[in-house]
């Protein structure tokens, strides 16, 4: 009976669950994102350099941004504009953003000079660029929420640019309530989703090897002993 199950091409008979969308999804995830790839226990030796630290530094900054942002949103502007603890939490939010962007830009420079889109990692590169762009928009809406003359200046300079490209009618930087919702709801979800996708792509494809290790490093060979992907076939 078991022999029939193993050899049958019918997934219902074989008991693989591939005849349901949940079963198909499970098989797809296990094939493309196996647990040992998502949560590896070690990394190749070339990862032990400061050049590979800044991506996770940016993620750490993002964790602090989201944590302090949640506290700010739970207590509201009258708390974080007036009380000492509110000022402190507001400052943690700001300086986390500063570190997030600084680490992200250094990460971008290093990965650019490493040509980190090699070896089928083009989508990893693209999701990183999208994360950078969405983060800029999110930070921009944050500066609009200072509710002082600085934010008023930024808003009224920006509204001309946004009107010029035709999106000022539904992304109105002079509408504080609308920008508040963009900043604490829609844009954080977008940043979180794109960054999560970026990290999953890094896990799925592995961290990019240094340029001079791509052809010869034995650690790039997989467990079956096959050679690494040739550079000529990479995008």
């Amino acid at each position: 009976m078991s022999t029939v199950k193993e050899s049958s091409p019918d997934p219902e008979v074989a008991g693989t669950g591939a005849y349901t969308w949940t079963g198909k999804s499970r098989q797809w995830f296990l094939r493309h994102l196996p647990p040992d790839k998502l949560l590896p226990e070690d990394q190749p030796s070339y990862v032990a350099t400061w050049a590979y630290v800044f991506g996770m530094g940016a993620v750490a900054g993002l964790v602090f941004i989201i944590g302090s942002g949640v506290v700010l949103s739970l207590n509201g502007p009258q708390w974080y504009h007036v009380s000492s603890l509110g000022h402190f939490t507001n400052s943690v939010h700001l300086w986390s953003v500063e570190l997030f962007f600084m680490f992200m830009v250094v990460h971008l420079w290093i990965k650019f000079w490493m040509a980190a889109w090699r070896g089928g990692r083009l989508l990893t590169w693209i999701t990183g660029m999208v994360a950078f762009l969405v983060s800029i928009v999110t930070a921009f809406t944050g500066y609009l929420l200072q509710t002082n003359f600085d934010s008023q200046w930024i808003a009224f300079e920006a509204k001309d640019a946004l009107n010029a490209v035709g999106i000022g009618a539904w992304f109105n930087v002079a509408n504080l309530g609308q920008i508040f919702m963009w900043h604490i709801m829609l844009l954080p979800l977008a940043v979180g989703a794109v960054v999560a996708l970026h990290v999953v792509m890094v896990r799925a494809h592995g961290v990019v090897p240094p340029l001079d290790a791509a052809e010869t490093d034995a650690q790039l060979c997989d467990s079956n002993g096959t050679s690494p992907e040739p550079e000529a076939n990479q995008p």
Partner: peptide
């Protein structure tokens, strides 16, 4: 500061890096 971080990341040795596999 970002330029300094970039250069330091390339030249500074990583702690414990030599003992890894």
């Amino acid at each position: 500061a970002m330029l300094v971080l970039f250069v330091l990341a390339l030249v500074l040795p990583f702690p414990g890096g030599r003992s890894r596999k």
